[in-house]
């Protein structure tokens, strides 16, 4: 399982970086979304993978850390998910406004010919 998750993170991060380096704003927004999946999964994975051990204290189960998933990376990622939603929204609107102001969707606000 660890190999699969690691590969998944790698594919997401690689695709994200590729898109982030592209010249069109929409590509960059999608790239950031993919990158945020990769980063969230990565942080989550630092808590190690466990199946059926959600960090919710159950009756009759002793409070032993080895019987529960690590809650700290989960708490970190939970806030990160909402923040990446906010940044995606902000970037999308910046994209639209920049598009309206500059007439192009190139990330530099002008087509490369003008350079």
């Amino acid at each position: 399982m660890e190999v699969i998750v690691a590969l998944a993170i790698g594919v997401l991060a690689g695709s994200g970086v590729w898109l982030v380096l592209r010249p069109r704003t929409f590509q960059v927004v999608l790239g950031l979304a993919l990158l945020s999946y990769a980063v969230n999964l990565f942080i989550f994975a630092t808590g190690r993978l466990t199946v059926d051990r959600a960090p919710i204290i159950r009756e009759g189960v002793p409070v032993d850390p080895s019987l529960y998933a690590d809650p700290v990376p989960q708490a970190l990622v939970l806030t990160a998910i909402v923040i990446s939603f906010a940044t995606t929204a902000l970037f999308l609107v910046l994209l639209l406004v920049a598009r309206g102001l500059t007439g192009t969707d190139h990330v530099d606000g002008r087509e490369p010919e003008d350079r």
């Binding site: 998750v5 790698g10 594919v11 991060a13 690689g14 970086v17 990769a38 999964l41 990565f42 994975a45």
Partner: peptide
Amino acid sequence: VVGVGVALLAH
């Protein structure tokens, strides 16, 4: 490089 690196690191 980023993808492979992150995958190795995560693993």
